[in-house]
Amino acid sequence: MKLDEVPQDNNRTLGGYRKAMYARDESGRMVMTPSNGWEVEEIVTTQAIDTLQAQADAARQRIQAGQSAPLEYWIYARRMDIEMLAQVTGLWRWRIRRHLRPAVFARLSPALLARYADALGLTPDQISRLPEQP
């Protein structure tokens, strides 16, 4: 990649940051240069975020249908999945899945609720309900 080929596509996903890239200058020397993004990166980052968003939306529908607890929505809204939450909280995956049943979730001990809330960086109150529709 030559210096003048370094993409400057103004990626939204970079939030104003510029990243360092290595490219060759006219004399053939590799030098570091800032880039405000490449559309390719924006496409795949947006896809990763959209995938999590879709999972959160699907969870929201299950919750509204009474099939799942609001905790499930927050797992994806905080960019995790059940496997990751299991690692962070030290709880078994099957136990987390069981806790996602609305009836079981309603009876969770304050200690467990706090454990989930802490892992997600939220309060017990927040993870017990859905946020307003955006």
């Binding site: 990649m1 990243k19 360092a20 890239m21 290595y22 490219a23 570091m32 490449w38 390719v40 990166e41 496409i43 795949v44 980052t45 896809q47 990763a48």
Partner: peptide, 16 residues
């Protein structure tokens, strides 16, 4: 497929 590209380009590799 998008994930492969992210690991290759997006996460601070200096390109490629």
């Amino acid at each position: 497929i998008g994930h492969v590209v992210r690991m290759q380009e997006e996460i601070g590799t200096g390109g490629a």
